[in-house]
């Protein structure tokens, strides 16, 4: 049985539906990527699952963690899951930390809540966690304030805080987007090594396909509130079948292709208040037929493996350009 199982999760704000029935399973110790552009619902999926959306959001469907239902669960029940079983880190670490408290106090708070540690035991554990996420001289820097750390270090502190409850699953929502390239590489490396050491599962939410393929086993691509393709990373990135997935890959400039013209996905993401009939991607899709503008495709298992929501998936096994090894 998978650790977390999401079924037909739907979210609406003020009567506007932004999530149209998400099915997703996360196995124990698995790293799953959630890819898509802004507004596609990748963050909302997990905020809804953990009951973190504002009151005006209408959430329906089912989110089970080891069989226990989270949707419409009592606050006490949610509290025993959040932070302890499932922890979450966000894009902007400096705004997730409390600026007026020392980082040590913020980590020990988490240790007290989730593991009942107090006093010197909590402090020693906080130092161990800071050390584990690569903060140099953790024993002295534990008494510093968030503004005394750089952006990359703040993200490390956030990760230490998330690990404080020994979660089985870490939801990382664009954890490296606000960081510089070389620091991003450090954080991706850190997340991978923590997973290796602790066996923790991870959901990695990102618009950066490269980062997702670096740290995930499996990934789902979302468009306009739906999952349009899901597969293991090798197949998804090797031969994407959904025209949108393919479009995302083709739009990334290729380091080895020099000044070749880019291939954008024409048009723009549809407004959730005004979704096109049929497949939401049809107006931007080169393969769309009249059938696509009338009916919405379901996410279906493919013969070659993986699931795709498309009436005309790309069956060619032509390799992607970035997987080709080019020796300069």
């Amino acid at each position: 049985m998978s650790f977390v199982s999401i079924r037909d999760l739907k979210v609406a704000f003020d009567g506007v539906r932004v999530l149209h029935g998400i099915d997703l399973d996360i196995g124990r110790g698995e790293a799953v990527g959630l890819v898509g552009e802004s507004g596609c619902g990748k963050s909302v999926t997990w905020l809804a699952a953990l009951g973190l959306l504002p009151g005006k959001a209408r959430v329906t469907g089912s989110v089970r963690i080891e069989g226990r239902e989270l949707i419409d669960a009592r606050p006490g029940e949610l509290e025993s899951v959040r932070g302890a079983r499932i922890a979450m880190i966000f894009q902007d670490p400096s705004s997730s930390l409390n600026p007026v408290h020392r980082v040590g106090r913020q980590i020990t708070e988490s240790l007290r809540l989730h593991r009942g540690l107090r006093g010197s035991a909590a402090r020693a554990e906080a130092i161990r966690l800071l050390d584990m996420v690569g903060i140099p001289s953790a024993a002295t820097r534990i008494d510093l304030y968030p503004h005394e750390f750089s952006g990359g270090q703040c993200q490390r502190v956030m990760i230490a805080m998330a690990l404080a409850g020994r979660p089985d699953l870490l939801i990382a929502d664009e954890p490296t987007t606000a960081l510089d390239a070389t620091i991003q590489a450090q954080i991706l490396d850190l997340l991978s090594s923590i997973r290796r050491d602790t066996g923790m599962a991870m959901v990695f939410i990102s618009h950066d396909l490269g980062a997702v393929s670096a740290v995930c086993d499996r990934a789902s691509v979302m468009y306009a509130g739906r999952i349009v393709e899901t597969d293991n990373v090798a197949r998804l990135f090797g031969a994407p079948k959904h025209p949108y997935t393919r479009g995302l890959f083709d739009a990334i400039p290729d380091l080895n292709a020099g000044r070749a013209r880019l291939v954008p996905v024409e048009g723009t993401v549809p407004d959730p208040r005004n979704l096109p009939q049929g497949c939401a991607f049809a107006p931007r899709c080169a393969r769309a037929t009249r059938f696509c503008t009338a009916y919405a495709p379901d996410l279906k298992l493919q013969a070659m493996g993986g699931k795709v929501a498309c009436f005309h998936p790309d069956q060619s096994s032509e390799p992607m350009r970035e997987t080709q090894v080019v020796v300069a």
């Binding site: 590489a185 396909l209 990334i252």
Partner: peptide
Amino acid sequence: SSIPLAGQGL
């Protein structure tokens, strides 16, 4: 070398 390339690991 830090540029994440789609389809390549760490």
